[in-house]
Design a protein around this nucleic acid. Structure first.
Lengths: 113, 113
DNA sequence: TTGACATATTCCGATATGGGAATATATTCG
DNA sequence: CGAATATATTCCCATATCGGAATATGTCAA
């Protein structure tokens, strides 16, 4: 049994540094493929292929306009990673217990209003 | 150029679901290899090999006692993942801005004391 | 010492990979 | 229409992978 395909889930897609760079390069904007080629200095086919993987796991969304494709990051697709890592956060961040208290407080305040 | 080795960094090591399961199974305890074999229902060599990858990227620490090896999770090795994902958190969690305010406040309070 | 136990390592095989180069597919413009 | 532009796809290959099976290494116990 080989390694799980990169398109299996966000964990596998994001394991490759180039794809993290790609997501960073897009950031909060809506960006064109050629713009990403310029920003990252990768070849156009390489960028397109990485975007294909990111698309397969819903990490990016695309909008077609003429001959351009405008890509943007689909943040929520990263949530599974965030949630999983977060369960270990307590191990390295001792202040989290205080933060927990604050969150509980914040939540109860919201429920009141 | 093939895929980056699983031992390249925490991102690659953790891309494999079995290894996330392994870390989950260890949790906050200190656990023996055979105990993990029992908990996960994987073969002993498989568990040992996964632990080898996790060791290579410092995601687990080991202590040898007689013929046993006691493994524990090394939380801080997950921080790079946490930090990277966190930079996109704002995309899906709108309450983060309020949380930011709280953190700034908390920090300034700490500096005072 | 010999056997049992705990763990690691090696050998095997089918498979997906990332990047380069070339090419295909649209779409726009003149 | 034909050229140019934007993007995706295909073909290539050296390489690392996961799991199984077998085996090696190390430690304890009688």
């Amino acid at each position: 049994m080989p390694r799980a395909p990169t398109t299996t889930d966000a964990f596998n897609a994001v394991a490759e540094a180039s794809r993290r760079d790609l997501l960073d390069a897009i950031g909060a904007e809506e960006v064109t493929v050629n713009e990403l080629v310029d920003r990252l200095g990768l070849s156009q086919p390489t960028v397109s292929k990485h975007l294909g993987v990111l698309r397969a796991v819903d990490l990016v969304l695309v909008r077609t306009a003429g001959r351009n494709r405008w890509y943007r990051v689909n943040g929520p697709a990263l949530k599974p990673i965030h949630d999983w890592v977060r369960s270990f956060e307590r191990t390295w961040n001792l202040k989290l217990d205080r933060l927990d208290d604050l969150l509980v407080e914040l939540k109860s305040q919201e429920e009141i209003q």
